[in-house]
């Protein structure tokens, strides 16, 4: 069997197809969006001068600034909830459930809903959260409420519930992986060194699963920022985040504004990933 050495001519040639694809599908479109966002002048034309006016105009608008902050606040909230919930689920599945059969069954029950597309899952929340929806009927049947709760659907509460449900797996999966990679003897060694279970968790388990937490948080962060489907279907027209704004400008043929918001959204996402990479070295995960 022959092997290809890194940095050899053959290695570079093998990287060409993937490189071309990335160039055509990612780099060029991104540069195009960046370019469009910098177009000046009155009419939409490639001959327009380059300017930062579009950004200045967008950022000077108070309601747009508020919407950006609101998007980040929503992401932060969903990250917090899915982070705690996802960690608890991961810890329960890998540490507390000792029977392999039960673990597999519970894990499948947790994962299988995520095999459907995001769009379908988002739409599925409408009959679940609606006035005559499953949740209201269940609460009515249980005698916990007397009137159906309107606020579940077409509200921020509904969107948040849907997003928590949609993205918990993303927060949980990397933690499951990291927990599984911790040898049980480490926990036991700490216990024989007089560490109580809480201390074992704080000093051994939590630091060793930190990369999983951070990766999960990055995934949730990126998905919440990019999510306009859930916001549209579950939030109705009452709610908008940056992703919806892009769609709104695009549908209104405001191509430069669309590009500006897209670039800002990308910048926020990249900043988030950069922060995460400062906390953990993702390349070391699994090593």
């Amino acid at each position: 069997m022959s092997s290809i050495r890194p940095r050899s001519a053959a290695a570079y040639w093998l990287a060409v197809p993937a490189g071309l694809w990335m160039l055509a599908a990612v780099v060029l479109p991104t540069l195009l969006i960046l370019w469009v966002s910098l177009w000046g002048g009155q009419s939409v034309s490639p001959d327009n001068p380059i300017t930062f006016d579009n950004y200045a105009r967008f950022l000077s608008n108070g309601s747009y600034r508020a919407l950006m902050l609101d998007t980040l606040a929503q992401a932060a909230m969903i990250m917090g909830i899915t982070g705690v919930l996802g960690y608890c689920i991961a810890y329960f599945l890998t540490v507390k459930v000792t029977s392999p059969a039960w673990r597999t069954a519970l894990f499948l029950a947790f994962v299988i809903p995520f095999w459907t597309s995001t769009l379908i899952r988002a739409i599925a929340f409408v009959p679940f959260l609606g006035v005559n929806g499953l949740l209201n009927q269940a609460l009515l049947a249980a005698g916990l409420i007397e009137q159906p709760i309107q606020a579940f659907l077409y509200s921020r509460l509904g969107v948040s519930m849907a997003q928590v449900s949609l993205y918990t797996l993303l927060a949980s999966g990397p933690v499951v992986y990291m927990l599984n990679s911790i040898p049980p003897a480490l926990r036991e060694a700490a216990m024989t060194l007089k560490a109580s279970p809480f201390t074992v968790f704080r000093r051994i388990i939590l630091p060793l699963t930190l990369p999983g937490i951070v990766i999960g948080q990055v995934l949730v962060f990126l998905n919440v920022l990019a999510d306009f489907i859930t916001v549209t279907t579950v939030g109705g027209n009452k709610l908008a985040f940056l992703g919806n704004l892009i769609l709104l400008f695009y549908e209104g043929s405001q191509i430069r504004a669309t590009a500006v918001v897209s670039v800002l959204l990308m910048a926020v996402m990249l900043a988030g990933v950069a922060v995460a990479l400062r906390i953990v070295d993702i390349r070391k995960v699994g090593g």
Binding site: A185, E188, M191, L193, A195
Partner: peptide
Amino acid sequence: PWQRDIAMMFQDFALFP
């Protein structure tokens, strides 16, 4: 274990990475 007057050495040493 944390209330016993013992220490333990594990087969693969179980060092905290």
